[in-house]
Simulated assay, not measured.
Amino acid sequence: MSSISSKEYKQGAVLSFGELLLRLSPDDGGQWLDDNALSVFVGGAELNVASALSLWGVPSQYFTALPKNGLSAQVTDYVDRLGIDTTKAHYGGNRIGLYFLTKGKDLKHDALIYDRANSAFAELVPGRIDWDKVLDGITWFHFSAICPAVSQQTADVCLEVLQAASAKGITISLDLNYRSKLWQYGKQPQEVMTMLAPYCDVIMGNIWAAETMLGIPVSGNIHESGQKSLYLKEALSTSERITQLFPKCKVVANTFRFDGSGGIDYYAALYMDGEFYSSQEYRAESIVSKVGSGDCFMAGLIYGFYNGQTPQQTLAFATAAAYNKLFVHSDATTNTVKDITNTINHG
């Protein structure tokens, strides 16, 4: 048994670390200008994880950096009402980060515009935070590759907190979120992420993110047949390589979401203790939003391990949770454990 499955988490909380963002969602026709109204969502990859865990009954804490003003107070109150403990948030700096995403569009191309420069989180520097205090009572620490993509100093802060969490024996999970519009400060993702991955016990993403961020090559002809068996074989190879390169890592998860004219296919795989598991495959002709689906999958992994589920049960829960999120407008899921269990049973 690995430390992931045998460790007792019930005595501690899960801390999600990352930048809180406001998502502004104009429609692609410009009607928002005539209506003088713009949809706003409170988001950020790690906050989406924290929200799901709180909804599912896991003690959930959140570390971010915000300016000390009335807007931050309103946002923090909103997050608190989700059942997330925000008392460890750092207050300083001048602004909250924003991003614009055109309604109904993916996190790609011109539909996504970041406005995060000089945000309170982006201005964090090493040596400013008492990590022993922040990590008190925490048994699981989660972050994503979006954090070190913001700037060199945020990457340095990530390294600092990972070292502190690792020294305390806290389980650390990483989502290999790749955002091509970030990573603009002169470093390639591999240069940074290969310095952070050695501290992680759980790494989640997909085979292409592992190639971009960890330098693990993907077979060049994998798309020729589109066969699920070949994708899963590649996931196994990537997972084995990750655990070889980063021996602290005990669990690797890979998600697969394929969008086509006929709808969306979604499935996932999990590698743990030398065993490889695959999920059932879900298919939908249309969805509501792709935002936060991967975050929901990550939350599902944490939920499963936190509650002592088997690897196959954990994978099933995470996959169903991520699939269900495709039908939710907001950044974070609103589906309960019962909703997700029903999907597993009737998927």
Rank of each mutant, 00 (worst) to 15 (best):
T314M: 10
D80G: 09
E240I: 02
E285Q: 12
G30Q: 06
V288A: 03
D295Q: 12
Y199C: 11
G12S: 11
A197Y: 11
A209S: 14
A117C: 00
E191L: 10
R179V: 09
V161H: 14
F258C: 07
F258D: 05
K233L: 06
R283W: 06
V75I: 05
Y231W: 03
F297T: 11
S225A: 07
H109T: 11
M195P: 08
L232W: 05
G215W: 03
K168E: 12
T194V: 12
R23Y: 08
A13Y: 09
W183T: 10
C249L: 05
A117P: 01
V291P: 15
V288R: 14
G137C: 00
Q163S: 04
T334H: 07
A284F: 08
Y99V: 01
L162I: 01
T171K: 14
A165T: 13
A253T: 09
G43S: 11
I170Q: 08
T238Q: 13
D136C: 05
E240C: 01
D27I: 00
F317P: 14
Q313I: 14
D27W: 02
R257Y: 06
G292C: 11
F141H: 11
N69F: 04
D136L: 08
V14L: 04
Y282H: 14
E19Q: 00
N94A: 02
Y277K: 05
P59Y: 09
D34G: 10
S225Q: 04
G300S: 14
N206A: 11
G104E: 04
A318E: 10
G70K: 14
F258M: 09
Q309G: 11
Q153C: 09
E211P: 06
L82N: 02
P148S: 03
L82H: 10
K325H: 03
V14Q: 05
S330I: 06
V251E: 02
A120E: 00
I207F: 04
S261I: 05
G44N: 04
F100M: 10
L22R: 00
D136H: 03
L22S: 01
V75T: 01
I340F: 02
D28E: 06
Q31H: 12
G30W: 15
S6P: 12
K133S: 13
I113P: 09
V337P: 02
S60I: 08
H142T: 01
G347T: 11
I216H: 12
